[in-house]
């Protein structure tokens, strides 16, 4: 029976891995498509944009937007702090906090750092590579969990010689 679980675990891990690969490859292909002019539509899009002022910064987006973003950031921060006062299970807490943080990060990148107003090709050159590289680091976690299982206090008596707590 144990082997079924091993097999499932392996399948999931391999799935995650290949998902990462395909995701990375897809982002890379998107970049290559633009670079290699494989996709004529995108090229036309790029060409069309050249007629417009090249830099979003010179247009006036209205500062009101930025005040709203600032307010939203403060609000989300208060929400996060509020979560610390009600005692949620750790995993739910982690997922909620990371979700809110990603939202805040998106607001900062999009509005304060102006990414929303840059050309699409600029965003594609910068963001996918960063995200894929950071996500890749997730591969270290199986080892973190394993070393936890190896610790003396976590090894159940009857499995002491197999080394892995099931």
């Amino acid at each position: 029976m144990e082997y079924v679980w091993y097999f499932l675990l392996f399948a999931v891990l391999a799935g995650v891995w290949f998902g990462l690969i395909v995701g990375g490859a897809a982002s890379w292909c998107a970049l290559c498509a633009i670079v290699g002019r494989a996709n004529k539509d995108i090229v036309a899009f790029l060409r069309g944009e050249l007629a417009k002022p090249s830099d979003g910064a010179h247009k006036d987006h209205g500062m009101a937007e930025n005040y709203v973003v600032w307010g939203a950031l403060l609000f989300f921060t208060l929400l996060e702090v509020g979560l610390a006062y009600i005692h949620l299970p750790l995993l739910i807490m982690l997922v909620t906090l990371l979700g809110l943080s990603l939202l805040k990060a998106a607001l900062i990148i999009g509005f304060f750092m102006h990414m929303k107003f840059e050309k699409r090709s600029f965003a594609i050159s910068i963001i996918p590579a960063t995200v894929v590289t950071i996500l890749l680091l997730n591969v270290i976690f199986p080892d973190g969990l394993r070393s936890n299982a190896f610790r003396e206090e976590n090894v159940p008596e009857e499995h002491a010689d197999s080394g892995e707590g099931h």
Binding site: I34, V35, V43, R47, E49, L50, E118, K119, F122
Partner: peptide, 12 residues
């Protein structure tokens, strides 16, 4: 084409 050189292709 923007990527054919002579201009900054990313517009920044």
């Amino acid at each position: 084409n923007l990527w054919d050189g002579g201009v900054r292709p990313l517009g920044a």
